[in-house]
Design a protein around this nucleic acid. Structure first.
Length: 825
RNA sequence: GCCCGGGUGGCGGAAUAGGUAGACGCAAGGGACUUAAAAUCCCUCGGGGGCAACCCCGUGCCGGUUCGACUCCGGCCUCGGGCACCA
């Protein structure tokens, strides 16, 4: 055993042996309870950054902890390998996206191994490999057969100069990032997944996810946005046509003063043909990027279409406006506007001097000031003919019933959730397995022809996808009629790959099917770890695909992830690490300087997993210092611990605590308390305080006299196990050097004798009116009356009480005594 | 704009079901060892007052509930995440 801590030597030797012995290989034939621990796989961007190091460490700590609890653990890793950055890198470095991606994967895999992450590398997946995406293409075809896939027009950001579709992040201040041209909205035909068919189940099953953060569940629930309302027809004056609107507030029906339609609404287009002002407005609306945030924050504008509709109840004429804030995708793309009771309608009405008609008054009968804002709460109806004087809730029911009886409207449950557009007009993605034939229309690629392989050696200009100019890719024969046909050149949204990879890890190397029985053994994932930024999109899509796979008979579970941990970002000087800010800290350099254990320890210690972590150069030095001290103390006690291992000084099975020295008993009790606390913290995943616990235990051991060899031995035995999931290398090395049996990786979790360890006296806090005034010692298990008496008779308490009268005494067992006292008579 | 989080010493953070605010670590200051420095070890360390025992104030801001509030409720300020083609 070296006198000094040499992290590199220990870590590299151990990592090599883990690899050689396939220590972390997972198998399905085990009598142990299974535990599937998964961390969101990365995009292979080139090298690991601190954010990666943090998540992967957290996942690794959890999986190692579970292994020590005796579970059959599987922890795989792979690569979310398709996506935009490879195309950008291809333009910049003139390398093909495939080559660049594979190089990055090789480099990052080495970096992960150097961190000592306990992965089963045999299960590794790169989503850009045909062996993977062929099953995605296959699954798409199954959804197609079931009618869960359809094609429709949808808007994209169009760069008129580069003649290409832009991602939202490629639109900067309304212009294409490369060309600088003003982007335009353009409609193109795209494939969609009917995720809305699962909307109810996606919302209802959130309740089953007890071990998900509430935060994420609430976000998903709001995102899906189930609302109960009514679809209502407003007849168009002078025609037999009508506009359908959706509202959740039919109680405000009598307050409608105009109807607003989306710029994409067919009626708006019709109006534009006759009305140049409308045409001009629609044209202006095209220069806004396709993003909800954009729509919500831009100036609310509109123009009258000249169209009038009849109010369904009063038959009154109501003008129809086109407004830029009405979303075509939600409801029917048209809304009834009630300025008096909706804030956005209110502002719009003020801006264009449209009438504001109050039909709801506050329940307390007060007057509402309509100069500043709408009254949006529920209340009592006024000026609403037969519905006047009803409360909002009753009125909603009565009005809906009336509308249904008179065939003017129909009850409708609506979702904010929209169907998932999966077409991307890009090269670096999985090809959509469809052939377009002039005779036969849309023809799925026959399953025997899968996979449709993405050509990897291409010339990449960055403007349009190379597939669009590769006849060898798109010129095909129609599988039905045999005539010349055209292969789909769009590729899948990369969220599709990341929606089922967790299941494929459990069926790796299966060439005959997408998934096999092993998936039912491992799934659902017991612990999923990843960033909060994925709270809605990725996690919702994965839940949807999981249910779709279940309905395809590929799986039996309803949900993919049992427990979810969403971790925070790594910041430096209060900001996300980025090249432009110049605050990037390279994990590779940190490992070089301090070793993997120190980096891991700091990542876990510096903040609780869910919160952002502030990088600190001196902080990581502190973590390193702790490991050095630990090594030194272990070195100094090596003989004592080894001897105790071969020749125990106390027999735990027949231990008589009364014969143990009181001081030693006291130290042991503290050790046990720390160990119990660490267990509690591991289970609630507050890993930073586990490290605090380890440090406390270490500080205690450093002060323990050598005579207490039993305590020192117990302390080391427990400390090394508590620390093993976090700093696995040093823990294993010391475990071995101090003569403990086997590998710490498989060592059973420490069990304490805390419950049998007797305590004679406990200390309680004494408060007067909630303010700390003293401490008392009482026999453990003392009666409430005894405690009260001791507290009141305490000298300090007597002085503090003076001649105040005691009104009440509250005793919280094991914690405190609060004396409620007041003025004397 | 909408949805969801966070705000506690000089700094990162702790306080488990409403019960001692500041655990653990970092930084800083003082001391020991050393020719010296580094390393290591010991002490101090929220603010104010007091010779002291002790006292007062203090968890973003304002108000409420409670014997007792960092914790619960109402309102606000501020920083961050997401908003459907970044992943």
């Amino acid at each position: 055993m070296d006198a000094q801590y040499h992290p590199h030597k220990i870590e590299e030797t151990l990592q090599a042996s883990w690899q050689d012995n396939q220590t972390f290989k997972a198998s399905e034939d085990s009598d142990k309870e299974k535990f599937y621990c998964l961390t969101m796989f990365p995009y292979p961007s080139g090298r690991l950054h601190m954010g990666h190091v943090r998540v992967y460490t957290i996942g690794d700590v959890i999986s190692r902890y579970q292994r020590m609890l005796g579970k059959n653990v599987m922890q795989p890793m792979g690569w979310d390998a398709f996506g935009l950055p490879a195309e950008n890198a291809a333009i910049k470095h003139k390398t093909a996206p495939a080559e660049w991606t594979y190089k990055n994967i090789d480099f990052m895999r080495k970096q992960m191994q150097r961190l000592g992450l306990a992965y089963d590398w045999e299960r590794e997946i790169a989503t850009c490999q045909p062996e993977y995406y062929r099953w995605e293409q296959w699954f798409f075809l199954q959804l197609f057969k079931k009618g869960l896939v359809y094609k429709k027009n949808a808007e994209v950001n169009w760069d008129p100069v580069d003649q290409t579709v832009l991602a939202n992040e490629q639109v900067v201040d309304g212009r294409g990032w490369r060309s600088g041209a003003l982007v335009e909205r353009r409609e193109i035909l795209q494939w969609f997944f009917k995720i809305t068919a699962y909307a109810d189940e996606l919302i209802d099953d959130l309740e089953k996810l007890d071990s998900w953060p509430d935060q994420v569940k609430v976000m998903q629930k709001n995102w899906i946005g189930r609302s109960e309302g009514v679809n209502m027809n407003f007849p168009i004056k002078g025609t037999d046509k009508h506009i359908t609107i959706y509202t959740t507030r039919p109680d405000t029906l009598m307050g409608v003063t105009y109807v607003a339609i989306a710029p994409q609404h067919p009626l708006a287009r019709e109006a534009a043909e006759k009305n140049p002002a409308v045409a001009k407005f629609l044209d202006e609306c095209r220069n806004v990027k396709v993003a909800e945030a954009e729509l919500a924050t831009m100036e609310k504008r509109g123009v009258p279409t000249g169209i009038l509709v009849h109010h369904p109840l009063t038959n009154q004429d109501i003008p129809v406006w086109v407004a830029n804030f009405v979303v075509m995708e939600y409801g029917s793309g048209a809304v009834m506007s009630v300025p008096a009771h909706d804030q956005r309608d209110f502002e719009f009405a003020k801006q264009y001097q449209l009438p504001i008609k109050q039909v709801i008054k506050p329940r307390d009968n007060s007057n509402w000031d309509f100069n500043n804002s709408a009254f949006t709460d529920a209340g009592v109806l006024i000026d609403s003919e037969q519905f006047s004087n009803l409360d909002s809730a009753t009125a909603i029911e009565k009005i809906i019933n009336y509308l249904e009886e008179h065939h003017l409207g129909k009850r409708k449950i609506n979702f904010r959730l929209r169907d998932w557009g999966v077409s991307r007009q890009r090269y670096w993605g999985a090809p959509i397995p469809i052939i377009n034939c002039e005779n036969c229309g849309t023809v799925p690629v026959p399953e025997k022809d899968l996979p449709v392989i993405l050509p990897e050696t291409v010339k990449f200009s960055g403007v349009a996808s190379p597939l669009k100019s590769m006849p060898e890719f798109y010129d095909v024969r129609c599988p039905l009629c045999g005539e010349k046909a055209h292969r789909e050149t769009d590729t899948f949204d990369t969220f599709f790959e990341s929606s089922w990879y967790y299941a494929r890890f459990a069926s790796h190397h299966q060439e005959k099917s997408m998934l096999d029985n092993r998936a039912n053994y491992w799934l659902p994932v017991d612990q999923y770890v990843g960033g909060v930024e994925h709270a809605v999109l990725h996690l919702l899509y994965a839940r949807f695909i999981h249910k779709a796979m279940r309905d395809e008979g590929l799986l039996t579970s309803d949900e993919p992830f049992t427990r979810l941990l969403t971790q925070g970002m790594v910041l430096n000087q209060g900001a996300k690490m980025s090249k432009s800010k110049g605050n990037v800290v390279d994990p590779e350099k940190m490992i070089e300087q301090f070793g993997a254990d120190t980096v891991r320890l700091f990542m876990i210690f510096a903040a609780p997993p869910e919160q952002n972590l502030e990088w600190s150069d001196s902080g990581i030095e502190g973590s390193h210092r702790f490991l050095k001290r630990l090594w030194t103390l272990a070195y100094e006690n090596r003989k004592l611990v080894r001897d105790e291992n071969t020749n125990p000084s106390m027999n735990m099975d027949a231990l008589d605590w009364d014969k143990v020295d009181a001081n030693e008993r006291n130290v042991l009790r503290q050790i046990y308390e720390i160990v119990e606390q660490c267990k509690f913290d591991y289970d609630r995943q507050q890993l930073n305080t586990v490290v605090s616990g380890c440090m406390k235990l270490f500080n205690l051991l450093a002060k323990t006299p050598v005579a207490h060899s039993f305590t020192i031995h117990t302390g080391f035995s427990m400390l090394l196990r508590l620390l093993a999931p976090i700093a696995p290398h040093i823990s294993q090395q010391l475990w071995q050097d101090l003569g403990f049996e086997g590998d710490v990786i498989y060592a059973p979790w420490p069990v304490t004798q805390l419950s049998t360890l007797k305590i004679d006296e406990i200390e309680l806090v004494v408060q007067i009116n909630g303010k700390l005034r003293g401490h008392i010692k009482v026999p453990s298990g003392a009666e409430k009356e005894t405690i009260e008496q001791i507290a009141v008779e305490d000298k300090k308490i007597q002085t503090a009480l003076g001649n105040q009268k005691i009104k009440k005494i509250i005793v919280v067992p094991g914690r405190l005594v609060n004396i409620v006292a007041g003025e004397s008579e």
